[in-house]
Write a protein that binds this DNA or RNA. Structure first.
Lengths: 113, 113
DNA sequence: GTAGTATTCAACAAAACAGTTGAATATAGA
DNA sequence: TCTATATTCAACTGTTTTGTTGAATACTAC
């Protein structure tokens, strides 16, 4: 699991970490601020941040005793192109569903559902 | 980690599983066919498929002794909207880089880098 | 230097994960 | 029924992940 994309996806595959990223989308924040909404120790949140940092999704500065975290969305570009590759497949299935639903509405195919 | 998005992302966070999905993008395939490129036992690949199936990324049919796998891209829609939310952030950073590079080219700011 | 706040480290435990092996199940066809 | 092929299950192992606690580090302000 050494590749960057796997690391990024694994980092995103946790609701706590996604919540941290969502918070950072509104601006930089300290570890304490980030930890506040969660029912877990500061050390645990610190570890989550480390995971995000290893994935390149967060960078950190230093201001006095704070180490403010900053969102870095760049690694998500690879995720975007991964899912874009599959877009045609889900859209195709939606089209099929759409066709099916329209088919149900035509008077001819009245199978009572 | 019970939410669907986390399950989807975790399923995608493995190169073997992504390779399986990529193969399935070209059409349905049996477990044996899917396992062929990998240096691991059939049972291991079978487990990977199970993970993909639990995430709803694969469905299976039954034909004779085969259980053909089929790609289901729908769960990726949620991944797409996750990363779309962050698109502005990476594009903004690209813009900043672009601005910076253009700035370097203006005659006035010739600081020799 | 002492006290206070912010953050991380080290050591640990519990759970989840990825892989193996060997036996089991399911189906097809002679 | 017997055999071959396809696939999964159960049990086990080693590794990684997630969380805890208590001590350590880093910086600020008096």
């Amino acid at each position: 699991m050494t590749d960057a994309l796997s690391t990024t996806l694994a980092a995103l595959a946790d609701p706590t970490r996604r919540a941290i990223l969502a918070r950072l989308a509104t601006g930089e924040a300290s570890v304490n601020e980030l930890a506040e909404p969660f029912d877990m120790t500061l050390a645990a949140v610190s570890k989550h941040i480390k995971v995000l940092e290893s994935a390149g999704l967060v960078t950190r500065g230093r201001q006095a005793q704070y180490r403010p975290c900053k969102l870095e969305a760049a690694p998500m570009r690879e995720v975007a192109s991964l899912v874009e590759f599959y877009r045609k497949f889900w859209e195709q299935n939606l089209d099929q569903l759409d066709t099916y639903l329209k088919h149900l509405q035509t008077p001819k195919s009245d199978t009572t559902n």
